[in-house]
């Protein structure tokens, strides 16, 4: 990665474009503010979900992920993502195929059936890391027009953003800092809370296997954030967003209590702090609503 990189291939995945397009709009707008373009990956599919397809048949998971990687390779661009599932899947596939020549050969035999080949020429980046490391906190601060000084943000990383460390390369998974840095750049505070590092409960086919017990993990997480005095939860993952936002409707059906605890993808929160409206960030069309404190 160099500072001159001005364009990324944006791998959309499923939930960002098909359920929460506000995440896509927010991310494109913010990157554009800093002169970074996002190119569409025509013909991309599901990443496919690492905990799901990786759990059922990794020999199908891998070529589907590799096929997506080849689309970015053809564009000659590095990839940027807005979902930890996509990050997990594509980065792990890229890593395995670069590490194991035999596996690459086997995968390319399948991709060759429709004229594709994994060459190992792209790199998979998370949009939040691009904001933190490529754009940087100082440039970000210059664009903050509506400081979030009085806002307490419950930072939620999700799982596959940080782990496994040997593939992700963002340092400690127990003492992470990237989201805290980004939130604090807006003036917001990021209190510690009991279940900060806990999974949202959705991954690995868990939400599909037993949605009520998966919601119970989420309930515990939200309660611990509320108890710590947080005003909202900010995260880097479209799949966590689905669980944490829509899950609050499902939780109401299961338990009869509607928390309405505001859930925002990191670029949506930054968008508000940069003066964008909740409508253009898609925050008016989700389950949880935004309090005045965040809108000023």
């Amino acid at each position: 990665m160099t500072d001159e990189t001005k364009e990324y291939a944006y791998f959309l995945g499923c939930i960002t474009p098909n359920r929460y397009p506000g995440i896509e709009a927010a991310t494109k707008k913010i990157l554009k503010e800093f002169g970074i373009g996002t190119k569409e990956m025509v013909g991309a599919s599901c990443c496919p979900a690492p905990g799901v397809f990786g759990s059922f048949d990794m020999h199908t998971w891998l070529p589907v992920a590799a096929r997506n990687l080849t689309i970015a390779e053809e564009l000659g661009l590095e990839i940027v993502v807005t979902c930890n599932g996509c990050y997990g899947s594509l980065q792990e596939a890229d890593h395995l195929l670069k590490e194991h020549p035999k596996l690459r050969e086997k995968t390319n035999a399948i991709l060759g059936k429709f004229g594709r080949e994994f060459k190992g020429t792209t790199k998979v980046n998370h949009s939040i890391v691009v904001l933190h490391d490529v754009i940087g906190l100082e440039r970000l601060k210059e664009k903050i027009t509506k400081p979030m000084d009085d806002v307490n943000v419950a930072v939620h990383y999700g799982c596959h953003f940080l782990k496994p460390r040997e593939v992700r390369g963002h340092g400690s998974s127990e003492q992470p800092y990237i989201l805290e840095d980004l939130m604090q750049a807006t003036g917001a505070k990021t209190p510690e809370y009991k279940d900060k590092l806990m999974c949202c409960g959705a991954g690995g086919g868990n939400r599909t296997a037993d949605s009520v017990q998966s919601l119970e993990w989420m309930r515990q997480k939200l309660v611990s954030a509320i108890e710590a005095g947080c005003d909202c939860m900010v995260h880097p993952c479209a799949f966590c967003h689905l669980q944490l936002d829509r899950g609050q409707t499902e939780m109401e059906q299961a338990y009869g209590v509607f928390f309405n605890f505001p859930i925002l993808f990191a670029t949506q929160f930054l968008g508000l702090a940069m003066g964008m409206s909740k409508e253009e960030l898609g925050l008016d069309k989700q389950t949880t609503t935004m309090p005045e404190k965040l809108l000023k």
Binding site: L12, N18, P21, G22, E24, M41, V52, E280, L281, G282
Partner: peptide, 24 residues
């Protein structure tokens, strides 16, 4: 897609200024 798009979600995309269907 594990989570495909339908007509309602296409409207959500239009509301935030995106093409109604992503190029996937």
């Amino acid at each position: 897609h594990a989570v495909p798009i339908g007509p309602d979600q296409m409207k959500l995309r239009e509301a935030v200024g995106l093409d109604s269907q992503p190029p996937t």
